[in-house]
């Protein structure tokens, strides 16, 4: 039973981080109908920025993280302005391709600046002492990361559903032209969405980085796993993103623990295929309201 609990809870902890990264994808999809395929590389933005501030400028941890957040928001702003805004109104393939191209480009930039080797933070960003619970013990970074993920998730949800700007975002998500006719500056909304998305990706990247280190090859692969999560939850659903994150995390951990650790890598994609075949709009995705 203890091993089960161990797998179950570490699954939840992982899943929380998936959900956190996923919320960025959901926000972007809701606002602009674009699916952020570059999420894997965007994890690296925050992770590497923090590392650079810690290692090269030798700043304290809190300041490094704060500055990394600023960098992430700026990167989000730049992406919106230079990549996605010129492509508004283009076919889906262009948007997919643009974000893939962006991810390749970012990979080049990171490889150039930070090199292909895996690095880890010189100082503890998150406390690493394992947390033990009824005989099972869990990684300290993951536990703290999970708590942070839940808090950030809560903040984003609150902003989205309770604030004026959140209302404008939801309006924009539904109908761009109508939103403009109502006086919403749609471009600002897109920019804010991208900033928020890269910001949460950065937080996710820092959490993952403090647990397993940062590498231009394997960190993005962890990020790509979020794609099945978001789809499983329903592309437009914040709630779905959270639930699906936990489910995928748990399944992954249990499959990895009981069946075969190798299977862990593709569990999310197997789930993805099943979801696509049987329930493409996911757990909580919108089925369009059509009134005839």
């Amino acid at each position: 039973m203890d091993t089960f609990l161990q797998f179950f809870i570490s699954g939840i902890l992982n899943g929380g981080i998936y959900a956190l990264i996923g919320i960025g994808l959901v926000l972007i999809f809701k606002a602009s109908g674009i699916f952020n395929f570059a999420v894997g590389q965007l994890l690296l933005v925050g992770a590497f920025a923090t590392w650079a501030f810690l290692k090269w400028l030798e700043l304290p941890v809190w300041l490094s993280v704060l500055l990394a957040m600023v960098v992430a928001a700026l990167v989000g702003l730049i992406i919106e302005r230079l990549v996605t805004r010129p492509l508004i109104g283009q076919p889906v393939l262009s948007a997919v391709m643009a974000l893939l191209a962006l991810s390749v480009m970012l990979k080049g930039v990171f490889a150039f600046i930070f090199g292909p080797a895996t690095v880890s933070y010189p100082a503890d960003v998150l406390p690493g002492t394992p947390v033990s619970l009824s005989g099972a013990s869990f990684s300290g970074e993951l536990t703290w990361g999970f708590l942070i993920a839940v808090i950030v998730f809560g903040i984003v949800t609150l902003l989205f559903y309770r604030s004026r700007i959140g209302l404008a975002m939801r309006g924009t998500a539904e109908d761009h032209q109508l939103a403009q006719a109502t006086g919403i500056n749609v471009k600002h909304i897109f920019a804010i969405t991208w900033m928020a998305a890269v910001l949460v990706a950065a937080i996710g990247g820092i959490i993952i980085g403090s647990k397993v280190g940062i590498g231009i090859h394997f960190t993005p692969l962890l990020g790509v796993k979020v794609i099945p999560v978001v789809l499983f939850g329903g592309l437009e659903s914040i709630k779905g993103c959270f639930v699906a994150g936990l489910i995928v995390g748990i399944l992954e951990s249990i499959v990895g623990g009981y069946v075969d650790p190798n299977l862990m890598v593709i569990t999310p994609y197997a789930i993805l295929l099943l979801v696509l075949l049987f329930r493409p709009y996911g757990l909580f995705g919108q089925k369009r309201i059509e009134r005839i």
Binding site: G171, E174, D175, Q177, L178
Partner: peptide
Amino acid sequence: MEGQRLFKHL
């Protein structure tokens, strides 16, 4: 606008 356009899911 024409056609009673509203934010349907709100």
